[in-house]
Nucleic acid binder design. Structure first.
Lengths: 305, 305
DNA sequence: AATCATTATGAATTCTATTCATTAAAGTAT
DNA sequence: ATACTTTAATGAATAGAATTCATAATGATT
């Protein structure tokens, strides 16, 4: 009999195109998934993934099962929501604060989806950006904040969301495009275009430039497209998440390079008061983030706290 | 995470109203189901079945999950059928022969359902009744026969379907209604109303009357309703499956008694040529019988060969 | 050709579901 | 009421299957 976990594995394989990456996502080893897949294929006597391609692609049978998996996941979630209904545990408010501008890109669809499923939860976005967003939880001005540093504080519960790579973006004819990857010194004589937030909240400063004592000129813009326009017209460099960039890179609008030879990676957490962490709509919101992000954003990775 | 097997358990509990009976149906012990149920309830922090009633009834949360279970079962079966499609393994013919008249009552709905799902399988009913129905398989005049004796012959594969109780049916004012159960001798001066088939194919004769040397007068009728009419108008007794009787008994049209103090039980098997037993539409047909019978017929029981 | 990355495989292990052996509880009958 | 029967619950022991580990095979990349 096929089980939920098998379907989850197939979904991961489809979304990551690799057993190794899938394994991380479902918190098992690559070997486990290989065995699982083999068992499924033996059971159905049908190939489910084509191993001769990179990334792995599902056969039509595999695709059919993934379709089934999505359908079942939806149905299960709906049913599970409904059986909690009498408990009136799904009434409440969820004020969300974010630290990084780019998060808007995926947060909006998540919120829209969530609103449909949890009509009795008042969803709000806390406006403005805050130097110590966790403070918003203590002072009861927000119920959930998306942050990129796990400072593991008293009474706060952190849930890992995903990890993504920040790429240095530059005009196509920029001299630095000859490099394979950039290092701190490469930024000395450049202008950095960032969102209008304190430097401590910008990973590139916090993890690369400030430790090396490099402090390039800075210019700010509110919107991602605005930043990209400035970059394209040679006003400077920017550091942006790879998943927000793929379209622009594919069309050759700008170029991107790794920052450091391992790349500059950023972890995203959802932080809530520990007293809220068991509320079912809070957990639903967090898993909703993961689900839609892993499904729609390319090349993001799961991680453990 | 909830798994398919948990949903199957809930379906069984709903359909049987008891953990003990459910356990037989899913081929586990009562203890296993009790643990399973507890785990599910702990997981959801919601009661799923009301233990204070007999038969067990599901709470609204339990019912919701059973609804989910049916939906998922459908979806899984559809998907599994579709992924086999390229294999052209689902083309073929299935000529069905039956030994007992009453089987018609449940076979028709099963066939209708099956026809919808396996359009490329030619379904036929082999007409007439045959003293050695397995011969029909050897001589290629039928592909699947429903029989009540497992003679375990060479090259034939038997699949247990279900077990049901045969009750003696009599007019409401019949003197034998005073008995708790009937024994062979009670039939001596009675007229038996049966389907028009050889006595060797009638369980009451084969298992009770012939062994005791009792041979009452016999009268035949083609249809179950006709038999019941004769019984109601005091023309004799009949032995019929309990599940075909519940309606008539509830309305007080006739009375029924056990045959022997343990009751007279009959086992039903599906027999196919071993060479056909792995064909997916054959397996689908057999599991379709079980599914609809367990869902719609009351008080039938699973059994193992 | 050599190296790097990914998947496959068989044996060992771990972990969880199930069974076993009882107890507790509920329902029937005396 | 009381015994008797049936059914469910429980905790410990067990069995079995899924996962990991260690390594080989395969395929991609330089």
């Amino acid at each position: 009999m096929i089980e939920m976990r098998h379907l989850a594995t197939l979904v991961a394989i489809k979304e990551t195109g690799s057993l190794t990456r899938s394994a991380k996502r479902v918190h098992l080893t690559q070997s486990a998934l290989s065995h699982q897949l083999k068992r499924m294929e033996d059971y159905y006597r049908v190939m489910l993934v084509d191993r001769h391609t990179h990334p792995l692609v599902l056969t039509s049978a595999g695709e059919r099962l993934v379709k089934l998996a999505y359908l079942i996941r939806e149905a299960v979630e709906t049913a599970e929501r409904e059986i909690q209904q009498d408990n009136s545990k799904n009434k409440g408010k969820l004020r969300i604060a974010i630290e990084c501008h780019t998060c808007f890109d995926w947060l909006m669809p998540v919120m829209d989806d969530f609103r449909g499923h949890w009509p009795d939860v008042e969803l709000d976005l806390v406006s403005g950006f805050h130097s110590h967003p966790v403070e918003l939880l203590y002072s009861d001005r927000a119920d959930l904040v998306i942050i990129s540093e796990n400072t593991s504080q008293e009474g706060i519960s952190f849930s890992p969301l995903f990890r993504f790579e920040l790429l240095a973006v530059m005009a196509n004819d920029h001299p630095l495009t000859t490099r394979k990857h950039l290092v701190a010194d490469d930024f000395v004589h450049e202008t950095l275009i960032t969102y209008p937030v304190p430097v401590e909240q910008i990973d590139l400063y916090r993890k690369v430039l400030l430790p090396s004592g490099v402090n390039p000129e800075r210019r700010t813009a509110e919107l991602t497209i605005a930043i990209l326009q400035l970059v394209a017209s040679r006003r400077g460099l920017a550091a942006l998440p790879n998943w927000g960039l793929t379209n622009y890179l594919d069309y050759g609008y700008v170029s991107a390079r790794k920052i450091g030879h391992l790349g500059l990676w950023s972890d995203l957490y959802a932080a809530v008061l520990s007293s809220d962490s068991q509320k079912n709509y809070v957990q639903a919101f967090i898993s909703s983030i993961q689900q839609t992000c892993f499904k729609t954003l390319e090349d993001i990775e799961p991680f453990d706290s």
